[in-house]
Measured scan of single mutants.
Amino acid sequence: MQIFVKTLTGKTITLEVEPSDTIENVKAKIQDKEGIPPDQQRLIFAGKQLEDGRTLSDYNIQKESTSHLVLR
């Protein structure tokens, strides 16, 4: 499924993911596309910070959901 990640600069990154993917996996995909190390990434969805060990389905992130990327 596709999800979108919006950066603070207003850029939207499109990612191909599975509901069973962990947040860690998603951060690795963002690193592949954008070159941002996962330890600098914070992903926010529905006002919550997403934890590495959880999956997209844990957070009820469905296709075409948009989460926000904040850099630390």
Results as ranks from 00 to 15, higher is better:
K11C: 10
E24Y: 15
Q31H: 14
K48I: 14
K6T: 12
Q31R: 13
T12L: 14
Q41A: 05
E18P: 03
K33P: 02
L8D: 11
Q2L: 14
R54T: 06
A28F: 12
H68N: 08
D32Y: 10
T22R: 07
N25G: 08
K11W: 08
P38M: 15
L56S: 00
I44T: 11
K63G: 14
I44F: 15
K27F: 03
I44M: 13
K33G: 04
E16H: 11
D52T: 06
E24C: 08
T9S: 13
F45I: 04
P19F: 06
D58M: 05
T9M: 11
L71Y: 06
Q41T: 05
L8M: 13
V26G: 00
A28W: 12
S57C: 05
D58E: 10
I61D: 01
D21T: 10
K6C: 13
T66R: 09
G35P: 02
D32L: 14
K29I: 06
K27D: 00
V70R: 08
V26Q: 00
I36P: 03
T66F: 10
G47I: 02
D21Y: 06
T55G: 02
I30H: 00
Y59Q: 03
D58V: 03
Q40R: 11
E24H: 10
P19M: 08
Y59L: 06
D32E: 14
V17S: 02
Y59C: 03
K63F: 10
I23R: 00
L56R: 00
V17L: 05
L69T: 02
I3E: 01
Q40W: 09
S67Y: 13
S65V: 09
Q49C: 14
L71N: 05
V26D: 00
I13R: 01
Q40E: 11
K11Y: 12
Q31G: 07
I61E: 01
S67Q: 11
G10P: 02
I36K: 02
E24G: 12
H68Y: 15
I13T: 02
A28M: 14
F45G: 02
V26P: 00
S57T: 08
P37F: 05
K29Q: 09
D32C: 10
Q40A: 09
Q40N: 09
E16Q: 12
K29V: 04
L8F: 13
N25W: 10
P38D: 04
K6N: 06
K29Y: 07
S20Q: 10
K29L: 10
R54N: 09
V70I: 14
L71H: 06
T66M: 11
S65M: 11
T7G: 05
